[in-house]
Computed example of a mutant assay.
Amino acid sequence: MFFVYILHSTEFNKFYVGLSQNIDKRLKEHNEGWSKSTRAYIPWRVVHSKKFKTRMEARTREKYLKTAAGRRWRKDNIDLGD
């Protein structure tokens, strides 16, 4: 199984979209500063995830979420609980 996930940094109001087979491990890596692109915005929390059977399906969804249409979807569908 593969997961597409959206992280949010409340402190900086930043989002990150990624793909992984293990969300818990990947979130830990993001919060420990392993990823150059997310290091500056620690701490992160998962605000959305979706499971896919294949890496190709997950990658298609990840790419969509990184487009303008995907950002609009995120704005309309992700409740940050603020």
Rank of each mutant, 00 (worst) to 15 (best):
E29I: 00
Y41G: 01
R71N: 03
K75H: 06
N22F: 12
S49E: 13
Y16K: 15
G81H: 14
R39P: 04
Q21A: 08
S49P: 04
V47E: 03
L65Q: 01
G81F: 11
L80S: 05
F15M: 04
S20P: 08
I23F: 08
G81D: 12
Y16F: 13
S49K: 14
R61K: 13
R45D: 12
H8P: 02
K51G: 02
L7S: 06
K75L: 01
V46K: 12
R72L: 04
K14M: 13
Y16S: 12
M56F: 14
L19Q: 12
F3N: 05
K28C: 12
R71D: 02
K36Q: 12
E29N: 13
R74I: 00
N31M: 07
R55Y: 11
N13C: 04
K51H: 05
N31Q: 07
E29T: 04
T60D: 11
W73Y: 04
A40G: 09
L7W: 10
R45A: 13
D24N: 15
L19M: 10
E57I: 05
K53N: 11
K36G: 09
V46D: 04
A40N: 14
A68P: 06
T67Q: 02
A69F: 04
R45N: 15
S35R: 14
R74K: 07
T67G: 01
N77R: 03
G18N: 08
E62H: 10
N77D: 01
R61D: 04
M56S: 15
N77K: 03
H8R: 08
E11A: 10
D24R: 15
K14E: 13
N13Y: 07
K14H: 12
V47A: 04
T60C: 06
S37E: 12
K28N: 13
W73F: 01
W44D: 02
I42W: 11
G18Y: 08
T54N: 07
Y41I: 02
E32F: 09
R59Q: 11
R71L: 02
T38M: 06
K36N: 08
V47N: 04
E29Y: 11
V47I: 09
V46L: 06
I6F: 01
K66R: 15
R39S: 13
A40W: 13
A40K: 15
Y16A: 11
D82M: 11
K50S: 08
L65E: 01
R74V: 00
M1I: 03
E62I: 06
Q21W: 07
I78S: 07
R26I: 00
K53F: 07
F15P: 00
E11R: 14
M56Y: 15
N77T: 05
L65P: 00
F3G: 00
E32K: 14
R59H: 12
R71W: 06
G81T: 14
